[in-house]
């Protein structure tokens, strides 16, 4: 069923996200071909939650593939797949993945706790999006480092308030 997750996930969008890896956040947001617009306003709540989760550290890009539809017709029901590139061994694994919305009434959508039991750091769910916005996945690694991915979703009909 998912024996080759890394092949399945190489969609065009995720390739664009991967291709943007290595550039710093500000320059990536300014880059016209990336899915994030960089001009969308982010809620105060999101900024506070994000600051609390990162504690000033700079998350690296390129380790997470955050798959969402480019256009969500129904904001109540937006499928999301998060895959983190990690060997998931006792020494080196993903401890937690935070899923954040930048414009919903509540920024924290979910936190998934993983361990070496999982073998593959891949989680799926369905989320609400109140309007067009960036969705962010933030992963905490066992060595204390952070990884981040951002995906812009255009919402046609907003989900009533996540």
């Amino acid at each position: 069923m998912t024996e080759l997750p890394h092949i399945q996930i190489l969609t065009r969008r995720s390739f664009v996200v991967s291709a943007a890896a290595g550039l710093c956040l500000s320059s990536r947001l300014a880059h016209a071909e990336t899915p994030s617009s960089g001009t969308l306003e982010r809620s105060t709540l999101f900024n506070e939650d994000f600051r609390a989760l990162t504690a000033g550290a700079a998350p690296v890009e390129g380790k997470i593939v955050l798959e969402l539809p480019e256009i969500a017709e129904n904001g109540n029901f937006v499928p999301v797949t998060i895959t983190v590139d990690s060997p998931m061994t006792a020494e080196n694994h993903v401890k937690a993945i935070h899923l954040l919305s930048t414009s919903n009434p509540v920024a924290k959508v979910a936190t998934f706790h993983l361990s070496p039991f999982n073998a593959v750091a891949r989680v799926q769910s369905r989320m609400r999006l109140s309007k067009t916005q960036d969705v962010i996945a933030l992963a905490q690694m066992s060595d204390g480092t952070l990884a981040i991915a951002t995906t812009l979703v255009k919402v046609t009909i907003g989900g009533c308030s996540g």
Binding site: S101, A110, F112, H113, N118, V123, R126, R128, G162
Partner: peptide, 21 residues
């Protein structure tokens, strides 16, 4: 083997999938 904290941003009838060895 897996734990999740969910917020109101998760859709009705929550679907969650994860991997396990």
């Amino acid at each position: 083997v897996f734990r999740a904290e969910l917020g109101p941003g998760i859709s009705a009838n929550p679907y969650i999938s994860f991997q396990m060895r």
